[in-house]
Amino acid sequence: MSDTAAQARFVGPVMRAGEIGEAVIEAIHEDNTDRKIEVEEHESYFRVKVEGECLLTMATVSNILGREVLVSDIEMNMPSFEGFIRVETEKMLFLSK
């Protein structure tokens, strides 16, 4: 796959509709200000799509919700995602290649 194609790939989480899901959408907008972001809404889930790469930090989600949010809280509400994931204590990263 060429670099341009990878660049155009949108990656990111698929979130269950709900409080955490909403906060994740907001956090992704904050954590990826320079990237193109699209949100696709379905009856029970949202697909968040960020061009090229998607970062989600626990600090940003925690800030939005006013309480500590851990990666396991995200996991509980994330039935799928697009891209290659990298998980650390304080962040999730979705890569396009």
Partner: peptide, 20 residues
Amino acid sequence: EPYKVSYRDYVRAQRDKDVA
């Protein structure tokens, strides 16, 4: 592992998933 989890976090998350 692309998706790393500790056993401690795993148990916590799975318990919460089941409760829900």
